[in-house]
Design a protein around this nucleic acid. Structure first.
Lengths: 197, 197, 197, 197
DNA sequence: GACTAACCGAGACGGTACGTCTGGTCTTAAG
DNA sequence: CTTAAGACCAGACGTACCGTCTCGGTTAGTC
C-alpha cells in the first residue's frame, strides 16, 4: 500500500550526472500537448513545467529559448523526407505537396507554422529555419538534376529559385491554413507557368 | 515660465465624446517606433502607452487586441496598390516584385511579417489577413484577364492559383528576409515554369 | 409609438442654469443602492454614474469627494434625533441604544460605519464626523442637565466624558456588527459602573 | 568600494523553495513606511512593491489581501499586552488607557485605526479583528475575576459587557484622534457610572 | 567507501506585461 | 449655465509568466 502510494507520487529523479531521457520526453510531450490544446500563446515555460512535472531550470538547461523548444518539438515529430521518384517532374512536385500537406494536417503543421512565426522575432530560430530550408532546397536540386538528365527541363530554368518557389507555395498554404488544396493543381502552375509556350 | 512649464506637461485632453485623432496618431506612431526599435517582442501595450503618453484604456478602446493594433500600424504606412501595365505578363509580375520588395524594405516589411506571424495565433488577424490576401488576388485576376484578352496566357492555366503563388513567393521572401532577390528572376520562374515546352 | 420610445429613452436633461433635484435624488439613490448591494468597495464614481444615468462631472460638481457623497447619503436617510424622556437617566440611555440600533439595523448602519471608516483617511469626513459627534454630545448634555436637576447624578461625574462613552459604545457595536445587544444591559454598565458603591 | 556598491544594488535572491524572511521584513517595513508617509490611500500594492524592491507576486503570495497585509504590519509592531495590577480596578483601567494610548501615539495607532476601517469592507479583516477583540476581553475577564476576589465589584455587574465598553472607549478615542485624554478621567466614568449610588 | 559532479523537482525571487477598473478632468451637444 | 455622454491620462488592481536562483535529494563515476 505504501508501495503503491510511493509509486504514485514518484517523480523522475536524477539518474546521475547525465541527462535523463525520460525527462526530455516528458517535457517535449507536455509542450506539444499544450501547443495543440491551448495554442501558441498558451505555451509558457511555467505551463510546460507544471504539465511535465519538471523544474523550470531543467527546461532552460536543455532548451534555452522558446524557439529552441519549438524546434525540439518539431524534430521529435518530424519524419524522414521522402521524395517519390515518379519519372516526371510535374508528378514529383504534386506528390511532394500531397505528402507534406498530409503530414502537416496532423499536429506537425501547427508546430511548423509557429516556428515560422517565431522566426520573425527570434534570430536563432530564423537561422535554424534558414538552414532547414537550405536542406530542403538541396533535396530538390538532386531531383531537378535527375530531371535534367532526362531532358525534361527547359534550359533557362533557375533550379534553386524554382525549388524555393515550391517551398514558398507549401509554406504559404500552411500559413494561410489551406492544406486541402490539390497537389496536382499546384504542380501544374509550377511546372508550366502562365505564359502560352 | 509658468506658461512654458504648462505647455510641457500638457497632455492630450478629451475633445468631447468622440475620438481624438491626435491620440490615435500618437499611439500608432509610438507603436511603430517601438516595433522598429525593440522588435516585435518589445511591442507591449504598456510600452506604447508610456511612449505615446496615452492611457492604456485608450489603446484598448480603439484596438482591442495586439493584432488589431498591428493591422492599424500597417494600414497607416501602406500606400495604394499600383500595378504597372507593361503589356506583357512576365514583366508585370517582375514589376510587382520590384515594387513590393522596395516598399517592404522600409519599415513596412517588418510590420507585415509580424502580422503574418501574429495571424498564426490570433484568429482575428488571420481573418483580416485572409481578406487582404483575397483583395490582392483579385488585383491579379484583372491583370490576368487583360493578358488573356491579348492571347498571352495558356488555356489550361488556373489564374487564381497562379495569383496565389505569386503572393506566396512575395511573402516567402519577406519571411525569410531576402527582399534583395531580383524580381525578373522570380517572374521568369512563375511565367514559364520548369518543364520544357 | 415614437412618443413611447422617446419617453423610454428620455434622460434627465438640464432644467436651465440651476441644479436639477431629480438628478440629485437619482445619484444619491443609486449610490445607496450600490453601497448596500456591492458593499463599500464597489461604490465607485463610475458605477454611480452608470446606475444613476448621470454624468460623472455632475456628481463631482455637487460632491467633490467620496466622503462628501457618503455624508450626503447619510443625511438623506437620517431621521430626526429624538431622545425619549423617561424620567430616569438609566432608562433614557437604554432607550437611546434601542432606538439607534433599530435605526442602524436598516441600511443606515452600513452607511454610517463606512463614514467612520472613511474618516480614517479623509480629513474632511473626519471633520464633519467630529462636528456631528459634538452635536450628539450636546444632546446628551441637556439630558444630563435635566437629570442633575432631579438630583439623580453623582456630583463628581464628568458629563461630557460620559456622553462620549455612550456614543463610543454605540459606535463600537455598529463597527463590530453587534446591533442586537440589549440596550438595557449596556445602560446598566454605563449608569452604575463596575465598582461596588 | 565595489563591495559597497555591490551590497547596495544586491537584491534579495531566492533562498530555495521556501520563504525568505528578509523579503517579508522588507515588505512590511516598506508598507509601514508608506502608511505613515502617504496615509491609508497611498498604501497601494504597487507602491509597496516599488518601495520594498519586491515583486508584486511575492506580496500577494504571503498576504493575499490588503487586509492581511495590514494585520501583518500591526502584528509586527505590536508589543505584548501587559496589564498592570495596581490592586484597585479603577487604577487598573486608568493604567490600561495610559498604556494603550501611549502605544498608539507612535505609528501603531494609525495602523490599527486603518485595520478597523478596513474591517468595515473586508470580511476577513473583520473576522481577525473580532478574534483579537475576544482575546482582549478575556484579558479583562481575568482582571475582573481578581477584583471580584477582592470583593471590589458590585454583584450585578456584567463583566464581559464592561470589558467591551472599556475597549469601545479606547477604540473610540483612537478613531476620533483624541489619544491625549487622561486615562484616570475615563477610568472614573467606567468605574462608577453616572448615577448617584 | 567517501567524495565529487551533475541532474532533477520544486518553488521563491525581482520584474514586466496583461487586460480591466477607477479617479478626476475636460469637451461636446442638447436644452 | 446645467445636463448626459463619454474621451482622455494616470495609475492601481490581481494574475501570469519571465529567467535566475537556491534548496534538498538523487545517482554515477572517481579516488
Amino acid at each position: 500500500m505504501d508501495q503503491h502510494r510511493k509509486s504514485e507520487t514518484q517523480q523522475r529523479r536524477s539518474i546521475g550526472a547525465r541527462k535523463n531521457p525520460n525527462t526530455e520526453a516528458a517535457i517535449l510531450d507536455a509542450a506539444l500537448k499544450i501547443l495543440l490544446t491551448k495554442g501558441g500563446k498558451g505555451l509558457s515555460m511555467d505551463a510546460i513545467a507544471r504539465e511535465a512535472k519538471a523544474g523550470k531550470a531543467t527546461i532552460y538547461r536543455w532548451w534555452p529559448t522558446r524557439g529552441a523548444l519549438l524546434l525540439g518539438i518539431y524534430a521529435r515529430i518530424k519524419g524522414a523526407h521522402v521524395h517519390a521518384d515518379t519519372g516526371r517532374i510535374e508528378t514529383d512536385i504534386a506528390a511532394f505537396f500531397e505528402y507534406v500537406f498530409e503530414f502537416w494536417r496532423g499536429d506537425a503543421g501547427r508546430v511548423f507554422a509557429l516556428i515560422i512565426a517565431e522566426a520573425q522575432s527570434d534570430l536563432d530560430v530564423a537561422e535554424a529555419l534558414a538552414l532547414y530550408r537550405g536542406e530542403r532546397i538541396n533535396d530538390w536540386m538532386t531531383i531537378f538534376e535527375r530531371a535534367k538528365g532526362r531532358g525534361e527541363l527547359s534550359e533557362t530554368v533557375d533550379c534553386r529559385l524554382t525549388a524555393d518557389t515550391i517551398i514558398a507555395t507549401a509554406w504559404h498554404h500552411l500559413l494561410t491554413n489551406r492544406l486541402d488544396v490539390k497537389g496536382t493543381d499546384l504542380a501544374r502552375v509550377l511546372a508550366y507557368g502562365v505564359v502560352k509556350p
